[in-house]
């Protein structure tokens, strides 16, 4: 009960903060005489943005498709490679160091190359999203599947259970919490990848929209685009967090108790 009141109180503080932030923004523009082609006020963003709503919604769909498609492909590849590397000593000595060294490269630097190789369509954007999402997923999956305690390993060995059975009853559930660390990190990266890919070369999508309207000196519309990108990012992240709660409820409750 006490915790609940505390939660409500902290929630109110957050709402109050946001209201205060937007009020400050709204009224500091006339106050400091900021020209609207530099920084528009929130009310103007809403007003001008809603006039362009159809386009914004369509472009959100375009960017969402690139993001979600890329994310799902990265998820499948990342977990697949993660498991393969965890269970094969040859891959651990070859692919794993290779992935670690590529992780140090800013993946987004490949974006112009992919655009020039694959053109302006959906595919190069999806590839770039896969690229930025794949590494956090695969590296966390490797960590996850390698961190089973010594005791549990000896325990399942003493039961004589097959590798497949052990995988599904012990190794996989034990690995899920650490896997989700990667999934969540990748979910944050996914929209970033899609947006930047669209900046570089595209004819639709929110990234395309933002770069065009900014070029036309319309920061109000750029902010409207950013707002939709934020909503998209939050939705993707929220979905992954929800999956975490559904798939590993025991992990969430464990964290709550340890607090």
């Amino acid at each position: 009960m006490k915790k609940f009141i505390k939660w409500i109180a902290s929630g109110w503080m957050l709402i109050l903060f946001f209201v205060g932030f937007f009020l400050f923004w709204e009224y500091s523009i006339p106050l400091f005489d900021i020209p609207r082609y530099i920084l528009p006020s929130p009310s103007e963003i809403v007003l001008k943005g809603s006039a362009d709503l159809d386009k914004l919604i369509y472009y959100t769909g375009v960017t969402a498709l690139e993001t979600v498609l890329g994310y799902i492909i990265a998820l499948i590849l990342g977990v697949g490679f993660g498991i393969a590397i965890s269970f094969s000593s040859i891959l651990r000595r070859t692919l794993y160091p290779f992935f670690v060294s590529i992780e140090m490269t800013p993946k987004i630097a490949f974006a112009p190359l992919f655009i020039s190789w694959f053109g302006f369509g959906l595919m190069p954007k999806v590839i770039i999203v896969v690229l930025v999402c794949f590494f956090p997923i695969v590296l966390n999956a490797i960590l996850a599947f390698n961190s089973l305690s010594n005791e549990l390993t000896l325990f399942y060995q003493s039961t004589g259970a097959s590798r497949l059975k052990t995988f599904f009853t012990i190794r996989l559930p034990a690995a899920l919490p650490q896997c989700f660390v990667g999934f969540k990190y990748a979910a944050i990266n996914a929209t970033v990848g899609a947006t930047i890919a669209e900046f570089i070369g595209s004819d639709k999508g929110l990234g395309f929209y933002i770069s065009i309207v900014t070029g036309n000196m319309r920061p109000d519309l750029a902010f409207a685009g950013i707002f939709f990108l934020t909503v998209l990012g939050l939705t993707v992240f929220g979905f992954v967090t929800m999956m975490e709660k559904i798939l590993i409820p025991w992990h969430i409750s464990m964290k709550r108790i340890n607090k």
Partner: peptide, 23 residues
């Protein structure tokens, strides 16, 4: 062992059943 082999995603009963299931 000193560090037990109970898994956090199963209840006490589920953990006892784990031994049986693996076998």
């Amino acid at each position: 062992f000193q560090d037990n082999t109970l898994v956090p995603w199963r209840t006490v009963k589920g953990n006892i059943e784990l031994q049986l299931e693996l076998r």
